[in-house]
């Protein structure tokens, strides 16, 4: 018997795989980005040098941007379509429903996702495009006339509400990643009962690490550790 080939992305499972693959790409970026950020603790030269290196290799920069953009578009559009389907699947809600296995992170994936999306918009406007300059920082140039990332960061995070936005967003991100990190293995069928527990604990560890890694920068500035 022959059948027309099923297109993976038309199935709910395929959509989940899109989520997982795009999520994985974004995940990779997040880790890389975090490691990059941590260079701030090594002083202005390190992080500014890293930034200049990126800007002077457009292939790398734009390559990454294209991949990231594609991933985020795929991730968000698929998320919206899945969330819609899932809501439609239960037209009448329970009066009483007790969840026993799931957790807060899993139940709020869409919410944390939206928080991240809003945050990304703000974050791009803030530090990449510089739209928010004047609001809480004065863009500065370094000795070579290139953007002084270090200075931008430090002056921004001295403003408490700006730091607060970043901290909240990182909270959302780590919740998202905690569920996403082990969930993606299940979605891609890469799970195995033998290491499922280990996966779950690693997901917690990675999410915590990302959270600590990211928020350490604004908090360090706010509390004057990095000046």
């Amino acid at each position: 018997m022959t059948t027309r080939a099923l297109s993976l992305t038309n199935t709910t499972i395929g959509k989940k795989m899109v989520m997982a693959v795009s999520g994985f790409v974004l995940f990779g970026f997040v880790i890389g980005h975090m490691l990059g950020n941590l260079q701030i603790f090594m002083g202005p030269d390190a992080i500014n040098g890293y930034s200049h290196m990126l800007h002077s290799t457009p292939a790398l920069l734009w390559g990454a941007r294209v991949v990231l953009l594609a991933a985020i578009v795929a991730h968000v559009t698929t998320a919206v379509s899945l969330v819609r389907m899932n809501r439609a699947a239960r037209p009448v809600a329970y009066a009483v429903k007790k969840d026993v296995a799931t957790d807060y992170a899993a139940k709020t994936m869409f919410l944390s996702g939206i928080t991240i999306a809003l945050y990304i918009a703000y974050h791009l406007a803030h530090l990449t495009l510089g739209f928010t300059k004047g609001l809480h920082y004065q863009p500065s140039l370094d000795a070579n006339g290139l953007p002084n990332v270090y200075q931008n960061v430090v002056s921004s995070f001295k403003v408490p509400w700006c730091t607060a936005i970043y901290v909240v967003a990182q909270g959302a991100l780590s919740l998202h990643l905690y569920h996403g990190a082990w969930s993606l293995f299940q979605s891609l069928g890469l799970n195995h009962s033998r290491y499922n527990d280990a996966l779950r604990s690693s997901a917690v560890a990675v999410a915590m690490a990302v959270c600590v890694g990211f928020v350490s920068v604004p908090l360090a500035v706010l509390f004057g550790v990095v000046k």
Partner: peptide, 20 residues
């Protein structure tokens, strides 16, 4: 392939790994 296709056609939601 066929069973998943039918499962979707019936209007069940997608798995988001809640494990409920």
């Amino acid at each position: 392939m066929k069973m998943v296709e039918q499962m979707d056609a019936e209007g069940f939601g997608a798995c988001t790994n809640h494990l409920e």
